[in-house]
Amino acid sequence: MKGFVRLSLAAALGLCLAAPAMAQENGMSLGLHEWDSGIDLSTSDIILAANGAPATYRTAVPNIPDSAFEKPAVTENNLHMYLGLASLAMGGLAAISVPEDQTDLLNTVHYKAAKASWQLGAMAVGTGLYSHWDDFYLEDGILDRDNLHALLGLLGTLGYYLAVQGAVNDYNTKGAVTTDHASKGIFGGGAMTIAIALTW
């Protein structure tokens, strides 16, 4: 019994919260329906005819009701965002996973994360340039947030890449990796952080 009371209470509450929203939706569609069948469509026909515009797009148009907007889960924008965040996260992982001994370096989390960080960074730069090309205008100057974001993102990726290459070179020429490459990695992480923060 107790369970039932609780359940119905919860249901009542749910209804309570949903009812105004539902009422509003009904109101909305009512209003829009009126809008659709009213003068507007016919005037648009007249305008279209008068301008000789091809009427084809009117029939091919998907009829999406105004209330149906849902931000798509995967877009170029958020793909770019996730790649950048992942690159930063991998850089952080590399920073906290410095191996203590130098056996089997290629199989350490440190090396794998560092490599992933520059590769993800490169992909982030690529998707950013592709989907936000229209946000860059050189004449806006280097202090423009979007321009600075692009520059720092590129430098961050470059920093990650040079850090990895520096370590690999060390290993190949001296037989052991020194901590010299860390500064490039830290620079990369800093640049990447600021880049993301600027347009967050």
């Binding site: 009117r58 009829n63 105004d66 798509p72 924008n77």
Partner: peptide, 15 residues
């Protein structure tokens, strides 16, 4: 105002 939040009535998602 991001472009993936743009839905043009009678045309669809801008993206």
């Amino acid at each position: 105002f991001d472009d993936d939040t743009v839905l043009i009535p009678n045309f669809g998602y801008w993206s």
